[in-house]
Amino acid sequence: MLRGMAILLGLQLVGELITYVLKLPLPGSVVGMLLLLAGLRGGILRVDWVKEAAELLLRNLSLLFVPAGVGVIVYAGLIAQHWLPLTVAATVSTLAVLATTGWSAQWLARKHSCKRGK
């Protein structure tokens, strides 16, 4: 568990460093995610080292967003000013993304696996 936490935090730290040095428009955590993938793939890291800590965090991923949700009150005034366009744009656009991504990915994945005779 501790080893897992150390690895996850360490990879995030390295990720932050990489994005800072290369001026990437990405958060360090996303680079850390790719580093974990690469480390496991390359055999430098082992699944059982990170499994426990990773599972704990991923099982409770939604919980970690609660403080961000509460933080919305700080900008309540700003949101209230433009609530109608913001609400309509956020909801309709989110549904549109779900539809276009979901449909295109499902359609292409099916076509793809047909071609290979699966």
């Binding site: 990879l11 995610m33 699944v47 499994k51 970690l64 403080p67």
Partner: peptide, 16 residues
């Protein structure tokens, strides 16, 4: 909120 960082890193595991 801080734990979101290592949680995003942890997503590398299911990807692997």
């Amino acid at each position: 909120l801080f734990l979101l960082g290592p949680a995003v890193v942890a997503l590398g595991l299911p990807l692997y």
